[in-house]
């Protein structure tokens, strides 16, 4: 062992400089001129309970919507001679109830509940149209668009469910569905307005979305096979 005279610490044999002060060992005056640093520079719960909870939620929603509807009707009656403008918000409230409550209440047959809820947009559009006295646009324009959107969502969910590994491929399915929806929307508008099919903006949108979907499929199969949506989007 050798000893640093500056710091007093012991160092292994053969050490030339003290690692603390930089002093050359065996040279008492060397510390200052040996490049020594010196002073520092300034420097879950059960299925039964779940069912009960959903039932309560459906009841609360139903009562709340009923109160809102009643209030609207009373206000309309007070302000005018009969029920007029309140029909529109009443239809909207009915739509909300139809959309949510069947899914909440059909706890034993969830597919049936979802199917009934899926009809809500059609009912909503037809009711809005009917308020004006005739079914002018709801069946020829509204229904195909609503059907396209619902089928697009359903298709994406089914394709995702059928996939062994769910990752970027689910996004790709969603992009393909979005492209199809755009085509149907423009087609329905064209046929309703002009009676002729003339796809323009939707074909541009689709031609953009489809290659992106293709790339996502590629990325899923080749690059990110180990990535699932649960991993990517866990929160």
């Amino acid at each position: 062992m050798v000893r640093c005279d500056q710091c007093g610490v012991e160092l292994a044999e053969g050490t030339e400089r003290c690692p603390l002060c930089g002093a050359v060992l065996g040279d008492k005056d060397a510390a200052g001129r040996a490049g020594a640093p010196g002073p520092v520079p300034v420097p879950a719960d059960g299925a039964g309970e779940n069912r009960q909870r959903r039932q309560v939620a459906a009841e609360v929603l139903s009562v709340s919507l009923a109160i809102a509807a009643l209030t609207l009707v009373v206000l309309d009656l007070i302000m005018g001679a009969g029920i007029a403008w309140s029909l529109y918000p009443l239809v909207a409230l009915g739509f909300i109830w139809w959309l949510i409550c069947p899914t909440l209440m059909a706890t034993r047959k969830p597919a049936l509940g979802i199917a009934v809820s899926a009809l809500a947009p059609f009912g909503f559009l037809v009711a809005l149209d009917a308020i004006n006295g005739s079914l002018a646009w709801s069946l020829t324009l509204g229904a195909p668009i609503a059907a396209a959107v619902e089928l697009g969502v359903l298709g994406t969910i089914l394709a995702a469910k059928a996939s062994k590994i769910r990752g970027l491929n689910v996004l790709a399915y969603a992009f393909v569905a979005a492209a199809a929806i755009c085509l149907v929307v423009e087609g329905a508008i064209d046929l309703y307005r002009d009676g002729i099919l003339n796809l323009f903006w939707s074909s541009i949108t689709a031609s953009t979305l489809i290659p992106v979907a293709g790339f996502l499929f590629y990325a899923h199969l080749r690059l990110a096979r180990n990535t699932t949506l649960k991993k990517l989007f866990h929160y």
Partner: peptide
């Protein structure tokens, strides 16, 4: 007694 070593 302190035995000191350094990697540089």
């Amino acid at each position: 007694r302190v035995e000191v070593s350094s990697n540089m």
